[in-house]
Amino acid sequence: MSLPDYSGFKEIKVQLDSGVLVVTIDRATKRNTFIDALGADLKNVFEFADKDERVRVVILTAEDTAPAYCSGADISGGWSGLFAKDDDEEGELAHRDGGGQVSMVIYNCRKITIAAVNGHAAGVGVTALQLPFDLRFVWAGAKQSLPFIRRGIAPEAGSTYLLPRLIGHSRANSLLLTGGTYLPNSPLLENLYHEILPTREEVFPKALALAKELAVHASPKSVRYTKGLLQHGGESIEESHLLDSRAIRILAASPDAAEGAKSFFERRPPQFESKPSKDSWYPWWRSVDVKYRKTKL
């Protein structure tokens, strides 16, 4: 495929450096509120990253001088701004939550994804812009709010699926059914984060350092399979054993596995192939088509 052009985005800034794609939300004057254009940019950039063989890790962050990492959806025009024209014409079954579409693209990205949360976050700034990521770094002073029940709406962006799986059902209940605001060090939230940093200026450098390490030391194909096993494992330990076993057998025969062993014994950084080799098994799960199709009589 031709190489993606990362220069044409309106609401984000994007930079690719040594296998790490840095995506910065660029709406500081609007408190980095979430609008349709931002959602479209994020979907596109993560779809590009998924296919771009140069990209090993993706980081999402905001300028550390911005008033918020993401202060939630822009509802200055009311809730009707969240719905497309087809929603009105076709009814409630036609609506597809914009935050959820972003969440699914990030969650399904086959690269390592990192959220560097260097500011306050509310609503979709937590649900879509943190929960679907593989790893999360956060400033200890960043207020995190999930106020859906206090606004008369439902949690979005796949949060009722992701949050209980990440921190447990009881903590998810506490967060979503109180609609409160909590700091990352709260017992309800602290397990969500890879690292909690004392200052906001430390968040992105820490995330970038780990991203650069993983861009060198993590096999792209191993990352892809590991994420698949975590997200689409078996219904029992026996089913997971069957999936693990086949994955190990396939990966052990790959050039990356040979290079991983060789570099270990030679005590040097590995030189993994940037292009994951294809096989007939991955993905082993059935994908659900979420597109809405109008009824034709």
Rank of each mutant, 00 (worst) to 15 (best):
G98K: 12
K43A: 07
T65L: 11
D52N: 13
D86T: 11
G77P: 13
D52T: 10
K111A: 13
E63F: 08
G99I: 01
G77M: 13
K30F: 07
R54A: 12
D64I: 05
E90K: 05
S71V: 00
A94I: 06
H95V: 00
D50Q: 08
D36V: 09
E92R: 15
N32R: 04
R56A: 11
R96M: 04
R54P: 00
G77A: 12
G77S: 13
Y69P: 03
E92S: 14
V45H: 15
G39N: 10
I75G: 04
D50W: 06
R54L: 13
D52H: 14
D74L: 05
F46M: 15
V57Y: 10
V105I: 15
C109T: 12
A28D: 08
D87I: 01
D86R: 15
N108R: 14
I75Y: 10
A94H: 07
I35L: 11
D50T: 09
E53W: 11
G99R: 03
E53G: 07
F34L: 03
Q101P: 01
R56M: 02
D52K: 01
A28Y: 02
A73M: 03
E53P: 07
R27F: 03
Y107Q: 07
R54G: 08
Q101C: 06
C109K: 10
N108G: 11
L93Q: 11
K30S: 14
S71T: 01
K111F: 02
R56D: 06
A94L: 10
A84R: 06
T29C: 10
M104D: 00
Y107A: 00
A94F: 09
D50V: 10
A28F: 04
M104R: 15
A94P: 04
A94S: 13
A68M: 05
I106P: 01
K111P: 08
D74G: 09
R110Y: 01
C70Q: 01
D50S: 13
E53V: 15
K51P: 02
E63H: 09
M104T: 13
A66M: 06
L42R: 08
T29I: 11
W79H: 09
S80Q: 12
I75A: 09
V45L: 14
E47D: 02
G100W: 01
K111V: 04
E92C: 08
F48S: 09
A62Q: 00
D87K: 05
T61V: 05
A73E: 00
R110L: 05
N44A: 13
D41C: 07
E89D: 06
I106F: 03
K111M: 01
S103M: 12
E92K: 14
D36A: 12
A40V: 06
Q101H: 04
R96Y: 08
H95E: 00
D97E: 11
A49V: 14
L60S: 12
